[in-house]
Amino acid sequence: MLSVRDDRDREAFARLFDFFAPRLKGFVMRSGTSSGQAEEIVQDVMLTVWRKAGQFDPARAQVSAWIYQIARNRQIDMIRKEGRPMPEELQEDPETEADASQIVALEQEAGHLKTALNKLAPDQREVIEKAYMGELTHQEISSQTGLPLGTIKSRIRLGLERLRHELKDMR
């Protein structure tokens, strides 16, 4: 992803496409989208990944988290006239070098999340999938107790630490 961002490397983008396009298609089709429409979404999402690569920050997000957000925004745009309101981007100091230890820590947490997901019983896994595909209301999410919230909580702590660290550097 970094070669795509920094060098506009088409070979690297092609590899990203090979990994994510079939998974994106599977992800989008899980919520009942037809194969043809799913491919339109995959095309739009992958083009957005290329065009907005400059916004990707490995210290903030895993590639999959970033692509997930782009995919959900695209799906929302297709059903609603108003897109989803998004938070302001954090104004980061361009002089601040990404902290390698933060990137490693984020990767570890993401690894924990994937392990936790793969260990879930099929019915639990289905609840999580539905939640993150936007098929559960917030009331339904809050009544679910099976979400692997522990892993999410540790990521929140980690993310908060990093955000505070970054803002301190700016002052």
Binding site: Q62, S64, A110, Y132
Partner: peptide, 11 residues
Amino acid sequence: EAHQAAGGAVL
């Protein structure tokens, strides 16, 4: 951001 990561893991 943690929930985005969880969504990314599902993806």
